[in-house]
């Protein structure tokens, strides 16, 4: 019985370590400067939301990319509703044990920030942005498997 408590204690502790903190930004320009600003890093940025089914479906490919492709860093920019941060987004991140960095963006000034990501982006998600040496490569598409995503990323960064 004593051991059981001990194990439970350890489990709850490890769980706390695994569930990452999710930073919240209300301005995309600030997010870009803070999270995507290191010039030596190649970022693969996925715009998604827990309410977007195709986004959730392709997330595992980005998780795999983050752990297997050592040349890049994956950042998952959630566009979830602000009032669902604690009720939807955090439990989702915890349950799926997401390892890639997750941030929540609540910037409502779409007419300003969507064109910073890409001038032709209509706002449809999922969408993916690659940043290399300050250059942006944007695509509005769904990656149906890991290979498709990895091949696409490698083609752009090499």
């Amino acid at each position: 019985m004593k051991y059981l408590f001990y194990i439970l204690f350890l489990l709850s502790f490890s769980n706390a370590i695994v569930a990452q903190k999710v930073a919240v930004f209300d301005n995309y320009a600030t997010l870009e400067k803070t999270v995507l600003g290191d010039e030596k890093t190649i970022y693969v940025v996925n715009f998604w939301a827990t309410w977007c089914a195709p986004c959730v479906k392709e997330l595992p490919h980005f998780e795999q990319l983050n752990s297997e492709n050592k040349d890049i860093k994956v950042v998952l920019v959630s566009l979830d509703f602000k009032n669902q941060f604690e009720s939807k987004l955090l439990p989702f991140v915890k349950k799926k044990l997401i390892k890639s960095e997750v941030v929540l963006l609540t910037d409502k000034d779409y007419n300003t920030w969507l064109p910073i990501v890409d001038k032709d982006w209509s706002g449809s998600i999922p969408a993916t942005l690659i940043i290399k040496n300050g250059k942006k490569f944007f695509v509005e598409k769904i990656f149906s498997d890991y290979k498709e995503l990895n091949d696409y990323v490698n083609k752009i960064i090499n």
């Binding site: 939301a49 977007c52 779409y110 007419n111 969507l114 209509s122 449809s124 769904i142």
Partner: peptide
Amino acid sequence: PETTKAIGCSI
């Protein structure tokens, strides 16, 4: 404006 942008679900 004549055009605006917004987030939405892909078709």
